[in-house]
Design a protein around this nucleic acid. Structure first.
Lengths: 193, 193
DNA sequence: GCGGGTTGATTGACTGGTCAATCAAGTTCG
DNA sequence: CGAACTTGATTGACCAGTCAATCAACCCGC
């Protein structure tokens, strides 16, 4: 194995292990030792690569948000009309890649961490700003000056379904939620158009 | 001071201190020592009364949910019509007593804890069931068989605004959110009636 | 092509600190 | 007095982070 890729692949598997461990434990209360063991390395190596536990956790958060962003981007490329952009954003939020228990639980845990960790807060606000921006861009041509209020409502609806899913026991059923949010969106557009 | 009431008042002030400490720290990662110090007693006393740290935290969660339930009950007594019941539920969710940073942050932290703690999960599901039941009871006369779907949507909207508030920096502005949710409710009712 | 030196990868053992929980002793009040 | 109350001190467990040492791959001058 080439030297250069060693560090990157080790870091990647440690981040994956961190996300898995967070999901398994249901909170950010995980130890470096457990993350490292899950990744098949020693805890010392995790420190060697990341410097501190916090950096591992932040890297995990970045990874999750990057995944969410990629999903959104991919869904948006095929959307021609503003209404289609709305659908794409909704579909991406509850899509298979993002809307799985592992990600939802970790996301929720980071929400709590953002209370006291400036870096986590910044990342979280970035996610919110991106979601809001996507919604606004699609809503503006449809409802004009009502766009900000509608964007706030849709964002809350999406986040609310997300967080409620975290409390359910069964597997996540994104399709049903997509249909529900789409229906509400249609009603809101009809009323504000 | 009477001996009998000593235990109750000590317990109450420890629970209050726990909630305050959770809010100050932004997570459930608090120590018995800090809770006890905030309440003006030794950590040993906290253990004496509650037996374990977990019991203190669960008591704090119960206290918060009890507060939420009391707010809802109080708002509902004056509601004569189904639509008024909906308004009461919305108003109670974002009312001053429930919708303050301290409670929101603690509530979010408990959401995470419910992932791994069966007792916390049970309490959280109780809250969700109560909210859902309130909404259903008010919606059934208004929209009939669409009530479950609408209840799910409104619950997600409420929880979503809650959780998004936790990420904001400024003080919580419940009035604006009440107006927003009320407007959406009117639209949904009009469409499904 | 090869041997010695350099560099990164990896580990086990250790440290310093924190914290929940316990205990035994002291205090207060009926 | 004696029972409930309260505390400081202690214990045992856990964990993040450090360190010295080993190991494997690559480089380079000969």
């Amino acid at each position: 194995m080439s030297r250069i890729s060693t560090e990157l692949s080790r870091k990647a598997s440690l981040v994956d292990a961190a996300i898995a461990e967070i999901a398994a434990r249901g909170s950010l209360d995980v130890t470096v030792g457990r993350i490292a063991r899950r990744a098949g390395v020693s805890s010392a190596l995790a420190h060697h690569y990341f410097g501190s536990k916090d950096r591992i956790l932040i890297a995990a958060m970045r990874q999750i948000l990057r995944q969410l962003a990629a999903d959104h981007r991919q869904a948006l490329v095929a959307a021609g009309t503003p209404r289609a952009r709305l659908s794409a954003t909704i579909r991406a939020s509850f899509g298979q890649a993002s809307f799985q228990r592992e990600v939802i639980v970790a996301w929720l845990a980071f929400y709590v961490r953002a209370q006291g960790d400036p870096v986590a807060r910044r990342l979280l606000l970035l996610y919110q700003a991106r979601l809001r921006s996507n919604l606004l861009y699609a809503l503006r041509p449809l409802v004009g000056s009502d766009a900000p209020n509608l964007a706030e409502t849709l964002a809350a609806l999406i986040d609310g379904h997300f967080v409620r899913e975290a409390a359910q026991s069964g597997p996540a059923d994104g399709a049903k939620l997509i249909a529900s949010v789409e229906a509400v969106t249609d009603l809101l557009l009809e009323a504000y158009a």
